[in-house]
Simulated assay, not measured.
Amino acid sequence: MHNFIPPERFFAYLTWTEIEQLPNKANTVLIQPVGAIEQHGPHLPLLVDSAIGLGVLGEALTRLNPHIPAYALPPLHYGKSNEHRHFPGTISLSATTVLNTLMEIGESLYRAGFRKLILMNSHGGQPQVMEIAATDLHARYEDFWLFPIFTWRVTQEHKSLMSDKEVQLALHAGDAETSLMLALLPEQVRMRQAVREYPPEQPGRLGAKGALTFSWLTHNLSSSGVVGDATAASQEKGEAILDLLARGWCELLEEVYHFQSC
């Protein structure tokens, strides 16, 4: 049940009496991994975002100082994935459903005495929902501190492993995600079916990625479901990315533990 998460750090393995007796619950760090079940091209399984979140978090928790109380909640495998709706297998919840789910999880944890919750999101289609949930929960309970963090943003070092074009244009199922999956679940990666496909160029400054963008669905950008170069991926690169992300998350968990109310 705990997958990549160290069992002693898996919240759902605790009993209610153990949770009741936890010391310093207000300073205990809880992490809610949020992923997606959606297409990732012809070479990757649907659970990429969920697997990456759990793999990175599990490695970070393994490295974390054992004296820092931190627990991973059971993952939310479904997310808001309607941009991939044209590709079979994608399962999408509405933004309202994801938001309400996070709000109710947060309220349950607040009632139990917890005051620090990281919303660890690994799917690029829903960071705004995480941010709204975090703000709304904090507005409702002003001593409840939430941290909506995208899995890939704890460090920028991994971008040095990618080509310039990949950094600028890749959005989905490209080099980085494929490499990381080769490190985490290599038996589930079909590299013979990996493809290289980038979005069509737009005039001026508008693009599918960046500060000046437009509304799009994945099939507007790619016929394969890949937006990037999956053929450039390697397990060695994936292991390096995993190390960098896990290091960044380990540091973040310590920062949240030491975070003081504003």
Rank of each mutant, 00 (worst) to 15 (best):
L22N: 03
I19P: 00
S92V: 07
A12Y: 11
M103E: 13
E59N: 01
L109Q: 03
S50N: 10
G124S: 06
H86Q: 11
I105A: 09
Q39M: 08
A51M: 13
L46K: 00
E8L: 08
A70K: 05
K80R: 12
P75L: 10
P23C: 09
I105M: 12
Y110W: 14
A51V: 14
L14G: 08
S108L: 11
Q128I: 11
L47F: 12
L57F: 03
R115F: 11
E20W: 07
S81C: 12
M120P: 06
S92Q: 04
T62L: 07
F87N: 00
S108F: 07
G113M: 09
L99H: 15
G53D: 08
F10G: 00
R85H: 11
P88G: 06
G53F: 03
A51Y: 08
A51S: 12
A133I: 11
S108D: 15
L76S: 12
E131H: 12
R63Y: 01
K80S: 13
E107N: 11
L99P: 01
V48E: 00
T96S: 12
I105W: 06
L61A: 07
P42R: 10
N27W: 01
E59Q: 11
A134N: 03
G58K: 02
G53E: 08
Q126F: 07
G35E: 06
L119D: 03
I68P: 07
F114V: 04
D49M: 04
K116T: 10
A26M: 05
I105Q: 03
A134P: 01
F11Y: 15
V34L: 15
L99W: 10
I118S: 01
T17I: 10
T101P: 05
A134H: 04
V29D: 03
T96V: 14
H40Y: 08
G113L: 06
P69W: 05
F11M: 04
H77I: 02
N82V: 13
I19M: 13
T101W: 08
G55L: 02
L14Q: 14
S108E: 14
G125C: 02
L93F: 12
Y78D: 04
L44M: 05
P66R: 10
I31R: 00
P66D: 11
T101E: 06
L73D: 04
P74V: 11
L76V: 08
L64N: 02
E18M: 07
L117Y: 07
V29W: 09
Y78N: 05
T28E: 13
R85I: 15
I68Q: 07
G35R: 05
R115I: 09
L102V: 14
P23W: 10
R85G: 04
N121I: 09
L76K: 04
R63T: 02
P7F: 11
P66H: 13
T96A: 14
G125Q: 01
R63W: 00
G35V: 03
